[in-house]
Structure formats: C-alpha cells, structure tokens
Design a protein around this nucleic acid. Structure first.
Lengths: 181, 181
DNA sequence: ATCAGCATGTAAGGCGTTACATGATTCA
DNA sequence: TGAATCATGTAACGCCTTACATGCTGAT
C-alpha cells in the first residue's frame, strides 16, 4: 500500500550532492552503499522515470555526439521529500543472512559442514573488512568536510560489525571443533 | 530463474526437528529466527502447498472437532534437499539497514536529526539484545544437547554484533555532538 | 579491429508483504 | 458474551533481480 520504495531515497540522497546519470547512480551504489543497500539498472531506471513524473527530480540532456546521456538533478520538492524521510523516526532494518540460517539448522549435517560454512563466511567478511578499512582511512583524513563525517561513520559501522563477526567466527569454530561439548 | 525461495529451507529445517502446522511454523520463525529471517502466512502457506506437491513434505490431518489442523512432516526427499542446501558453499547474506541509509545522507538534515536517528536505532538494539542474551543464557545451560549448540551459536552471533552496534552508537553520537570536527 | 566500459532501457518472472476472508475454541 | 488465540488460506499489489536488447566511444 504505502510508498515503500527506498531506492527513491538512495537516488535523492545521491542527487542531493551532485548531478548524476542513471549509470553513475549505479556506480555510486556499487561503492560503499552496497554494504547496506543494493540497486540494479532494472530498479534504477524505472525509479528515475517515476520520480521525474512526480517532480522530485529533473532531467537535463547532456548527450555528446551520438552517445545518449541523461543527467538528473534534485528539485526543491525532491529535497523536501528527502528531508521528510530523514526526519521520520521509524526505519526498517533487515538482516537476511543465509549463513545464519545454515548455522541454525547445522545439526542436520553436523559440525564439519557447519565449520566449512563459517569459514566461507569468514573469508568474505575478511575481504570486505579490508575494503571498509580502506574507506575509513581515506575518509578520516578528510573528515573536516562535514559530508565526509557521515560517510566515515557509515563505513565505521561496517568495520565495527565485521570485526565482531570475525571474533564470533573464531569462537564458533573453536566450539564446533572441541570435543568437550 | 533458479530456485531461490529460502523460506522452503526454513520450513524444511524446522520440520527436520518436529512435525508442525503452518501456524506453528510462523510462531517458530517469529522467535529466534526473526533476527535474521522473516516469514508471513502469505509466504508460508503457499510454500507448504508447493513443497507438498513436489514431495518434500507430507501433510497429515490432525484436525480436532471442527478445528482444521494440518501438520506437516519432512520426507526423505525433503531431507536430501535440505542437506544439499547446507552443503552448498555459497550463501547470500544481505543487510538492508534503512538507518545506515539515513546516516549516509545525514548531511542533508544535519547532526541533530542524525543523532536522533541513531538513538532510535540504539533503543531497538538494546531491546533486542536483552532478548538475545536471554536466549543465550537459556541455551548455555542445555548446550550438552547437540542441537542447542547450533541455536546458541546463532543467538551468540546476534549478541556479538548487537554489542558492536551499541559500541558504535556511542562513538557516533559522541562524534556528532563534538564541536572539534 | 576488437574489447572493455559507457549508457539507456524493457520484459518476465519470482518473491514477499499486507490486507482480507472465514471460522473454531478457550478463558475471563 | 466477547476477546484473544488457534488455524487456514487467497488476492492484490509492489519491489526487485536477471536477462535481454541496443548502440556508442576510447584504448590497445
């Protein structure tokens, strides 16, 4: 029923900083944002069209030569919508971790399978954590710019939680490998 | 294209322990599982029907009096499907945290709004953490039962990460409230 | 000349939520 | 008697993913 499509807010948020094409938006989302929100072309382009229709954003053609290129910028109305959303206290936070599902039902296959699944998870987390730390390090240096502080805090959330994940992985593997229990 | 519906695995996992009705399944999911996976009646009942059709589960009518009641149990084929899934190394783990989205774009509304959003998040995490710790405490006492260890590890994952969240919340609020930056 | 990357989109299908519809039983 | 809980489902709708379709540009 109610308007739920959060991709609109991602787009408005990105456009509040700079003018972007759909393609650019995808690239931005694939960066630091991808750790907590995803987007696809089949998602972004229709949203862009809808939002233009409702006056939240405006297109302006920046095609060069035969290359089609449509940049969008946020309107006053779009900025209001974004502000309203930011001021709403309720937020929908969801985890969908298949790894945890497999862990929960780990008894069906036993310890070795579960340990392996944890290891696979651990490897991914280690890889992502490296990236997140890189983001953090770079942002820390430029934290005097107001916007950078928000980006830093977001990346830092990732670092804190991923480090907790790794700590848990070690503990869990140890428990699964011990014969005491 | 490919079969993706993970609710099937949740159901198979639950039925691997005991025979359950759709209503029971919903209640189980709303317990400890809800921290990392959700389910609804509109989700569960159709899945049950499909899975019965493909022979992964079997119904047997346990109606009493005028009260309709259909319990399902897992079949050999269902147990195989569950085992195959547990043995697949790739797992899809996704975070969709609207709070982080709001944080990332926090510059639009400024520090007070962002601090408030973090506080709302913090309150929810504190509440959930209490529950998770309760689960952990209860399971720790009965960890000699193999299955309980898996449940314990899952809840423990929640405790570790939620504690990291809280740690981050304090740090973030402090940074946002300071005038140094 | 070819390939990676830039750039815009559509179509089909799957998954899931919410609301609705219906009725029985238990307990205060 | 009325409310809460048990119990099963369907329908509408929304959102997203994946795959497809198309074409330009710049670098090797």
């Amino acid at each position: 029923m109610a308007r739920e499509r959060k991709i609109d807010m991602v787009i408005l948020g990105l456009l509040s900083h700079e003018e972007l094409t759909g393609y650019d938006i995808k690239k931005r989302i694939d960066g630091a944002i991808s750790f907590f929100w995803k987007g696809s072309f089949g998602n972004i382009y229709p949203a862009l069209k809808d939002m233009e229709g409702s006056g939240l954003i405006e297109r302006h053609d920046t095609s060069v030569g035969g290359r089609e290129k449509i940049a969008y910028c946020i309107t006053e109305s779009g900025r209001n919508t974004l502000t309203e959303w930011l001021n709403e206290e309720q937020a929908n936070n969801e985890l969908r971790y298949e790894t945890l599902l497999k862990l929960f039902f780990g008894g069906v296959c036993g310890r070795d399978v579960t340990v392996r699944n944890i290891e696979v998870f651990e490897e991914q987390v280690e890889k992502d954590l490296k990236l997140l730390k890189m983001y953090c390090d770079n942002l820390e240096k430029a934290i005097d710019k107001e916007d950078h502080m928000y980006f830093y805090l977001t990346a830092s959330f990732g670092v804190e939680s991923y480090e907790a994940y790794l700590k848990w992985c070690k503990k869990a593997k140890k428990m699964l490998r011990s014969n005491d229990i």
